[in-house]
Design a protein around this nucleic acid. Structure first.
Lengths: 145, 145
DNA sequence: AAATAAATTTATAGAATATAAAAATATTTA
DNA sequence: TAAATATTTTTATATTCTATAAATTTATTT
């Protein structure tokens, strides 16, 4: 078989299957999806697929570093295909909406004051706040009170 | 009743109960504990306590901002009483060990390049890497191969 | 094309967490 | 300080998320 993902998978000793392909496409199209959303999307193309196959592959692809998992409080694991570009996330406290962002002057953040002797390789940053919509409803609430 | 936590709880309309007190102490003594560890510790002082009460309170206290939840991949929710000091965490990829840290020059990190219009109030940073012990066993492994 | 290796389905199970009604415990009011 | 009220906790049940193992199917290698 031949495909854009063939080499990436082969390098990690993973074969290129229909499920895996569809799953990667689903994550590409809708980054920050959870297992159920991904399952539903794959199912549209491959009706026989099972949720177990989805979990298997999410783990296999995560372990191989082909996809990336984030796990914000208030949510189950979410996945994205953007990796190795050190990007971060903004998440709405109220509705859970997620956006990608670079981090201005992020380099200093890779240097914590106390590394506890750890050999660090990644700084994962989540910016918490209110999205534009929730800002509006929050202000409305305030006015009512 | 009178206690160090009385005012803090009262301010949030939460009453001071034996379970809640013991739970807060347990988290203080062992930061970054999960619900089960906290349950076990509370149980030592209050044998009749249930895991539901623990979950209830973890949620109630989180919502009130009295404790803080972190949820690293590969782990269930963990809790700590250190809040409002903008500290961050170093976590070992291999064994899951967690340490607290300040973030050198953290201020710029509160300014993402694209905030998507969000009104941000917190930057949560997790530093991933290998703890001293796991560095050693990792190097051993490498030598064997 | 056949042999081998890997992935997927089918089936089952476990951990983490939530909810709702009844009982117990705090807090407020009289 | 006792009674009334509000809140929390227990008891019981259920859901969601995720993992595992054996049998079948699909991909890859020979």
């Amino acid at each position: 078989m031949n495909h854009r993902y063939y080499d990436i998978l082969k390098q990690k000793n993973l074969s290129l299957t229909a499920v895996r392909l569809s799953l990667l496409e689903a994550i590409e199209e809708q980054p920050h999806s959870d297992a159920n959303v991904i399952f539903a999307n794959v199912q549209r193309k491959i009706p026989s697929v099972t949720i177990q196959a989805v979990y298997n592959n999410l783990n296999a692809l995560s372990d191989a570093g082909i996809i990336r998992e984030i796990k914000p409080k208030g949510s189950s694991s979410l996945y994205e295909t953007r990796i190795d570009d050190n990007h971060h996330h903004v998440i709405c406290r109220s509705c859970g909406k997620i956006g990608d962002t670079e981090c201005k002057g992020c380099a200093p953040c890779l240097v914590p004051t106390d590394s506890h002797g750890f050999q660090l390789d990644e700084a994962e940053v989540v910016f918490w706040g209110l999205c534009p919509q929730c800002q509006k409803s929050y202000h409305k609430q305030k006015e009512i009170k």
